[in-house]
Design a protein around this nucleic acid. Sequence first.
DNA 1: GCCCAGCCATACCCTGGAGGTATCATGGAG
DNA 2: CTCCATGATACCTCCAGGGTATGGCTGGGC
Lengths: 300, 300
Amino acid sequence: MELRHLRYFCVVAEELNLTCAAERLHMSQPPLSRQIKQLEREVGADLFERGPRGLRLTATGQFFQQHALQILEKVDATLDATRRMARSKRMMFGIGFVPSVFYGQLPLLVRGLRQKDNVELTLAELTTVQQIQALKAGRIDLGFGRLRIDDPDVAQEILFDEPLMAALPAGHPLEGTTPTLEELAAYPLVLFPAKPRPSLADTILGMFRRHGLKVNVMQEANELQTALGLVASDIGITLVPEQVKRVQRDGIVYVYLADKSITSPVICSRRKGEVPSSIMQEANAILEVLVENRRSGRYP
Amino acid sequence: MELRHLRYFCVVAEELNLTCAAERLHMSQPPLSRQIKQLEREVGADLFERGPRGLRLTATGQFFQQHALQILEKVDATLDATRRMARSKRMMFGIGFVPSVFYGQLPLLVRGLRQKDNVELTLAELTTVQQIQALKAGRIDLGFGRLRIDDPDVAQEILFDEPLMAALPAGHPLEGTTPTLEELAAYPLVLFPAKPRPSLADTILGMFRRHGLKVNVMQEANELQTALGLVASDIGITLVPEQVKRVQRDGIVYVYLADKSITSPVICSRRKGEVPSSIMQEANAILEVLVENRRSGRYP
DNA sequence: GCCCAGCCATACCCTGGAGGTATCATGGAG
DNA sequence: CTCCATGATACCTCCAGGGTATGGCTGGGC
């Protein structure tokens, strides 16, 4: 599949008429018909129902259309942003983070770093694995994740171990308790992040597995807030790091787990063997203060 | 630009060696060299620096790589999901929503509808404009948005008007006040959602404009939580509907505006002239209860 | 009920571009 | 200084994207 297939498909989906769509695309109708058929073969599903007065999107086609539009939108946005960036002259300092560390200290670090002039700070939501890759490739300079990864080129430092809590729909039978993993395993689970893997999701699944427990993953979500929305919608329960409970939402209660050893580390990753730049030194100094504050309870 | 350009680029970016990348891609080195050059021409920027011992990503190239990977990931995910959906046989009922209405009643509606058997409920984050298009195309069946849009095929119902509030970094000079738009305009603004437009972002910009005020849009974000993260990072302030203040975050305070007429409607959109299905009737009944609860203060 | 127009699908054709080989230039390692 | 690895360019082949021609089907209009 190529982008032209998505471009052709989206125009056809809007027009619901191959002849008109071909005109819009400045091509003739037969090759467009063939390209759409080729796309359907590759997807392995009919995206359109054919009729004598044009086409109708199938339910699958409607679904595909949403995502195809998003892909094309992101392609355009990426081209635009890349062109803008090529014209920019500022010094880049990139920070990668998994979303579940963005509720704690990270905003304070960002706030501190932003006071530096002549620096273009970029924040990128990346899994820990992606952070390792991004560090090695030079795309980011600091990473904040949750997984321990052994890599000869990357140094990982555990900032602290953070307890995991269960996020439950309000009114849940376990509300007000300090449940065991076994008790939690009896209920459907909302797992996040869905992709890419491995991630905190795998840490959680592994934890259940090591206790010989099977879990029913009812739905997966990429965004923590979407996961919490699903919990609020009574689709299941989820496990979150402690700092997430700062973000109170209606319809959700948080409970501590019976097993206090169930924690998730907040890990800072840096490239090995690099002489720290002035920005890196600044970041390290701010981090030291933040970790000390947490240790001493001044910043829970 | 086609997906193959992104595929080639990503492999080259990983290998940093055209010869090795060509091997991985099962092609020879010269056409790969040309395809990368073609991509660079289309992007209008060098993505690699060439050297006698291989390539190095430029800063622009690093940026492009992040996004290219995301695009390819989304393409794969879309194909997978589309194939799964083609195999699914359940009845679809789609709800589209702008994120800023997902903090209030929507989770309760979803929770209510999920109790129906044989229904596949899909939630799609869409702008109000996209919801209109999606309703007409049959991709969703209900839409919850913020913008009034006149369309002969879609009926819009204002559920209620919701006050807008300002989200400020903690310690902000305006903390604890009820500021005017003029006072707010003096500070940098974080605008969301960035794309697609028009959206609540345009409503907010239009509001400032109508008061003859110029605002400095410091940064745009697509996600509300990302916008709040940016506010917490002291990048600027943002305006949010009242229900968002339920989601408390460290580093952020919410203040009511002096002008109480500054509101944002929560609008429900449906296809016109359709006999409501049993699911739609159920949804309508739940909505009626939710709106009545809000009116009577039982559910703020 | 018939006819015609609009629409999509298929057959056949052409050519531009993707990918091949051959080869050159450059620079770093030994 | 030499050799080798690497990327770029020149030239070539062939296939797939897009063209025209045409057929079949169906619904709307008369």
